[in-house]
Design a protein around this nucleic acid. Structure first.
Lengths: 247, 247
DNA sequence: GTATATTAGTGTGTAAAATACACTAAGTCG
DNA sequence: CGACTTAGTGTATTTTACACACTAATATAC
């Protein structure tokens, strides 16, 4: 579970790559032309933790980039879809299922992994902060959550990938319902606003925010209230998928 | 040049796949786990022809989907980047270079090709209509341009891919300068408006359109005029990349 | 039980952007 | 020089975005 995509890869190379090359050469073809790249799936998993947008990273224990942090990933099995592979990664790393998951981009520059040609299809997942707390104690030796606003040095081209993830997330915020996937089923308007503020990394006006969200009809008042702390309790809302189109 | 991605694939399989499987089996591993998928790049090439948004397709000459039309594509060489592979495809099919090119999406469902596992990274290209006319006579036997609004039956999941291409194109129209890549260096405002109208598939108000485009400062008056037909000549503009940010 | 602290919740006026809409200008051709 | 055709222009209206400050409801300390 703490292995990164690239660690597993090297295991694979020993078995998969060499015979193909040998066969190609035996037929006097250009070996490089018929050699197949490895295909992996990396999953950028983001969640809100401690009022911060954080990403799950894994510490590498072998060359290259030994000791650096990396986005978790693994091989795509020959008979599973890319999305299934991504869900499997997600399950292995966080134990969570049924989260928001979308394909982000495919990175495949020949030089990105010094060992062999690796094409990696990157997925992007958003995890409900509440369900995640359960596994917080699991943050043991070499798996960790990091603020996207203060990342450690990253292996491979993973910094670029996280940069791109953040851009995509921001871009989709106001014409999709992506923000809801970071919250539990019921939430207050202030909590929703905080999601937007953390992702956009700027303050929003409370009245305008509420006006805009409520006018779409995408929220449903549960009738319940959330009491925490020594102040007025807040209404709890629920996302109404029926009104999805309105955003 | 008239081969599709999948035709080439079958040639490749004979050489690449078998040895890897044999090796895996010899070690008593699950063969499917270490078998590598093929990776191809498909390129959706769109252009404006005869006041219509058209896409370049290739007719398949072999099983599966024999006789059906498909998006052109080919293998990614082991030492070339995905984008380089896409440019190579583009060059092979149209002879055109320096066009707008972006990565669209990666499709990799195990069942999408009945012969073997193929993961295809799809790129999306927009070609300047003018430069293309030169090669119009080239539309020989099994390469053809088709209106995106009246597609023939397509092989594989290619209809879905074209659908997605069109969505992406529309989505990017008004916050990028993507439309300019469908026009020659100099063009009239009416021609630009026509690009928007054809892509969005609806009429736009002439005055509002001009107001909006000109207010961004993204166009530069060349001073020249375009005279064609028996009516008032139109100003010729040029895209000003310096003002790109303003859209 | 009342004062204090803390967050929830609400409305209005102003500026900017999007939309609807019709006539004059500059060419060609007969 | 009249008829035809496309280029080019402005204004009023509606909609949307933005700026901005007070009251409401709870818990706690005294």
């Amino acid at each position: 579970m703490e292995q990164t995509e690239e660690q597993r890869e090297s295991t694979n190379n020993v078995q998969g790559k060499t015979p193909a090359v040998a066969e190609a050469k035996a037929h006097s073809y250009d070996a490089s032309k018929y050699e197949r790249p490895s295909v992996t799936v990396d999953v950028v998993m983001m969640s809100l933790r401690h009022r911060d947008l954080q990403v799950l990273l894994i510490k590498r224990r072998a060359w290259p980039y030994e000791g650096m942090w990396a986005i978790p990933g693994g091989f795509v099995n020959i008979d599973e879809s890319l999305e299934t592979a991504a869900k499997r990664e997600l399950q292995e790393e966080t134990g969570v299922q049924d989260v928001y998951l979308e394909q982000l981009y495919t990175f495949g520059d020949p030089g990105r992994d010094p060992r062999t040609r690796v094409i990696t299809v990157v997925y992007f997942a958003l995890l409900d902060s509440e369900r995640l707390q359960v596994r917080a104690a699991d943050d043991a030796t070499d798996v960790g959550w990091f603020s996207v606003y203060g990342l450690p040095p990253l292996a491979f081209d993973h910094e670029k990938i996280l940069q791109y993830s953040l851009e995509r997330l921001r871009g989709k915020l106001d014409y999709t319902t992506i923000a809801f996937s970071l919250l539990p089923e019921q939430f207050t308007l202030r909590e929703l606003q905080r999601v937007y503020e953390i992702i956009l990394h700027k303050r929003l006006d409370k009245r305008n925010f509420r006006k805009k969200i409520l006018s779409t009809g995408i929220l449903e008042d549960t009738g319940a209230k959330k009491m925490e702390g020594t102040h007025r309790p807040a209404r709890l809302y629920r996302f109404n998928p029926a009104a999805e189109a309105k955003l």
